[in-house]
């Protein structure tokens, strides 16, 4: 089993993530699938994270948190956010199979970022729904 995203979809995803999120001054945003594959990876040019390791850990972490939720009878925990001294990381699930990982400094307001994430997710859904599953 595999799935393909074509040039147009990937361009659309990059554009949406750039205009809606990167312009807020966030450090990086990574769109991954729940298997840990990296779909889109954008950063502000100042940092270089080990994106593939991050993706593997993010997918695992998200899976672990979801599994904990189901053990205690919750469908899922809506807030997935880790706060650091200067950098923070936020996870947002998109449909069942994708995860948006946003890394940002304290100068960015979490509330506003969440709002923008909600907006961009709508665009991402439209783009991804045209995916060919093979």
């Amino acid at each position: 089993m595999s799935y393909i995203l074509d040039q147009e979809q990937l361009d659309g995803l990059e554009e949406a993530l750039t205009t809606d999120l990167m312009t807020l001054g966030i450090q990086s945003v990574i769109l991954i699938d729940m298997a840990g594959n990296v779909i889109v990876n954008l950063d502000d040019g100042k940092v270089r994270h080990d994106v593939y390791s991050l993706a593997a850990l993010a997918a695992g972490n998200f899976g672990a948190v979801s599994a904990m939720a189901s053990i205690i009878g919750e469908e899922e925990f809506s807030l997935l956010f880790h706060k650091g001294k200067s950098e923070n990381i936020n996870f947002t699930k998109i449909m069942d199979d994708f995860l948006l990982v946003s890394i940002f400094g304290n100068d960015v307001s979490l509330g506003y970022l969440r709002l923008k994430i909600d907006e961009v997710i709508k665009k991402i859904k439209v783009l991804i729904e045209q995916t060919r599953s093979t």
Partner: peptide
């Protein structure tokens, strides 16, 4: 599920 990226010409597989 393997991901085929036609833009970066990359296939990601999980083993």
């Amino acid at each position: 599920m393997a991901f085929i990226n036609t833009k970066t010409k990359e296939v990601q597989v999980k083993l």
